[in-house]
């Protein structure tokens, strides 16, 4: 009951935030100093194309009217036509976004689970060698340069050792074979996903592990841990049933926060692995001056981040009954 109220309230907040983002993007794109036409119009574009763009953007209209049109177009799901692909932007994003969500959610879930369970163990063995080694490794992982690690993985796992595809999301040969069933295809995607997943996860695991470790150390000094000990519970049970869930709360919060910051890393990963996701599309759109696609990519990425934050909030409320009120 109260959970539903929480979701409702957070959804309303998200709507407000999204409206602010929507407006912010509009003003960023339109109000920056200088002539918007020259900024948005690719100079190599032919005059006809440029003119088309100007009228498509309604740049000949007053600002407030443009803003209203922009809102109206957004509400009707009309994001315009991508300059580059010559197709509705929604279509392009509709193809790319699911791939990004697949890669991202899997990576976030995996790295959070791994970070939580390993951080928990490491905190338990605080001061021992395993703690020192893992903590330092995590710090290193956290500061790794992402494209470098991505290329390293490709080189080692896909090239030198082999067994993994170099890039992409599917094996074209396999998918064009009518004999392949859905299961084989799903395995194929999984197979392709592993290296990008590993790249994204290794960056995040370190972060989550460190948070979990310090949070766990704090939790272990709580009174209810003493209670659990006095009850005669085994160390393992105390760790997993009592300390773990409480200590993982800050990690959950952090997952929500770090999501927005991991977009750039995600875009780089997608580029290196040629993962057909929205991050790669965003980089591509920005570097190709594909203004409608770039704007819509920003918007959809913020929608995903906001929704993910809502999920994180709900998860938090589920994990911690105290904030349900």
């Amino acid at each position: 009951m109260t959970l539903r109220r929480l979701i409702l309230r957070r959804s309303l907040e998200i709507l407000v935030i999204f409206f602010l983002i929507l407006s912010g993007l509009f003003f960023l794109f339109h109000l920056a100093p200088g002539d918007p036409v020259s900024r948005m119009v690719d100079p190599s574009m032919s005059p006809e194309d440029a003119e088309l763009l100007v009228s498509q953007l309604g740049l000949d209209q007053p600002l407030w009217l443009r803003y209203l049109y922009y809102l109206k177009n957004f509400c009707t799901g009309d994001f315009g036509i991508s300059f580059h692909y010559g197709r509705p932007v929604v279509e392009v994003i509709g193809e790319r976004l699911p791939n990004t969500i697949l890669l991202f959610t899997t990576s976030i879930i995996l790295s959070a689970l791994a970070g939580i369970s390993w951080g928990k163990l490491v905190a338990w063995y605080k001061g021992k060698r395993v703690d020192t080694v893992v903590t330092i490794t995590s710090l290193v992982c956290h500061t790794l340069f992402l494209p470098w690690i991505a290329l390293l993985f490709i080189w080692v796992f896909a090239y030198k050792i082999g067994g993994f595809p170099l890039n992409g999301m599917i094996s074209p040969e396999l998918w064009s074979d009518p004999a392949s069933g859905w299961f084989v295809k799903a395995l194929d995607i999984l197979h392709h996903m592993l290296l990008p997943l590993l790249t994204l996860s290794i960056i995040h695991v370190g972060e989550y592990l460190l948070i979990m470790r310090s949070s766990m150390l704090e939790t272990l000094s709580e009174d209810y841990i003493l209670t659990a000990r006095a009850k005669g519970l085994s160390e393992k049970r105390i760790r997993n049933r009592h300390a773990g869930p409480n200590a993982s709360l800050p990690v959950v919060t952090n997952v929500g926060l770090s999501l927005a910051f991991s977009i750039n890393g995600g875009a780089l990963t997608e580029t290196v692995f040629t993962w057909p996701g929205i991050g790669r599309e965003l980089i591509f759109a920005v570097s190709n001056n594909d203004y409608p696609l770039a704007l819509a990519s920003f918007l959809f990425i913020s929608i995903v981040v906001l929704v993910a934050n809502l999920v994180v909030d709900v998860l938090y409320a589920y994990l911690d009954p105290r904030i349900r009120y």
Binding site: L110, L113, A114, I116, S117, W118, K120, L121, G162, G163, F164, S171, E173, L174, D177, A179, S180, L187, D188, L190, H191, L194, K236, R239, N240, G244
Partner: peptide, 26 residues
């Protein structure tokens, strides 16, 4: 514990993937 086992199971499973995907379909 549960999540760690899940993660490890997943990693193990994926590491095995090349074995039965590497046979060419060409």
């Amino acid at each position: 514990n549960q999540p760690a086992r899940l993660v490890q199971g997943f990693v193990f499973f994926v590491l095995l993937l090349p074995l039965f995907l590497s046979t060419g379909w060409a």
